[in-house]
Amino acid sequence: MTENLCNQNLRREPRNDPENRRSDLEKIHPMSHQDIDKEIAHLERVFGQISANDRIPLSYWRNRLKMLPRASLMPTQRARLERLAAALHSMEQAAQKLAVEP
């Protein structure tokens, strides 16, 4: 019995992986299209104001993007997320350049 439980634990995927957290979250509380729209609108507002120097790291915002359920997105929502991902990528690139410069 104990061996069986141990084997089950070994097969579990890491909990800190955003993909796994997202699927767990979807099982508990699936997001409606309205919820997704609200989250995207929030991210759009925030992304217009953040920089690499902010208190909250860019990796946090990257994880917020990854937490949204891609399979249930409408085409307009998918396009909005792609724009957000591109904007975040630009901020991350700028932060890397600043980190390299003296």
Score class of each variant (00 low, 15 high):
Ser23Cys: 11
Ser51Arg: 04
Trp61Thr: 01
Pro57Glu: 05
Asp17Lys: 05
Asn7Cys: 10
Thr2Asn: 09
Leu58Phe: 03
Leu10Asn: 11
Val100Ala: 12
Met74Leu: 12
Lys38Met: 14
Leu98Arg: 08
Ala87Ile: 14
Pro69Met: 08
Met31Glu: 03
Arg80Tyr: 04
His29Gln: 11
Met1Tyr: 13
Glu39Asp: 00
Arg22Phe: 09
Met91Phe: 10
Glu44Arg: 05
Arg21Glu: 10
Ile28Asn: 04
Pro14Gly: 05
Leu43Lys: 01
Arg62Leu: 13
Ile36Glu: 03
Leu98Gly: 08
His29Leu: 14
Asp37Trp: 02
Glu101Cys: 15
Ala99Phe: 12
Arg62Ala: 09
Glu82Tyr: 12
Pro69Ala: 02
Thr2Arg: 13
Ala94Met: 11
Ser51Phe: 05
Met67Glu: 06
Asn63Arg: 06
Glu92Asn: 09
Gln49Leu: 06
Asn4Tyr: 08
Ile50Phe: 02
Arg62Thr: 11
Ser32Trp: 05
Glu92Val: 07
Asn16Tyr: 10
Ser72Thr: 12
Leu58Ser: 02
Ala71Asp: 15
Asp24Glu: 12
His89Gly: 11
Ala41Arg: 09
Glu92Arg: 11
Glu26Pro: 02
Val100Pro: 09
Glu26Thr: 06
Pro30Ser: 03
Ala99Tyr: 04
Pro69Phe: 04
Met91His: 00
Met74Thr: 13
Arg78Ile: 06
Ser32Tyr: 06
His42Arg: 08
His89Tyr: 04
Leu58Gly: 06
Ala71Phe: 07
Ala86Trp: 01
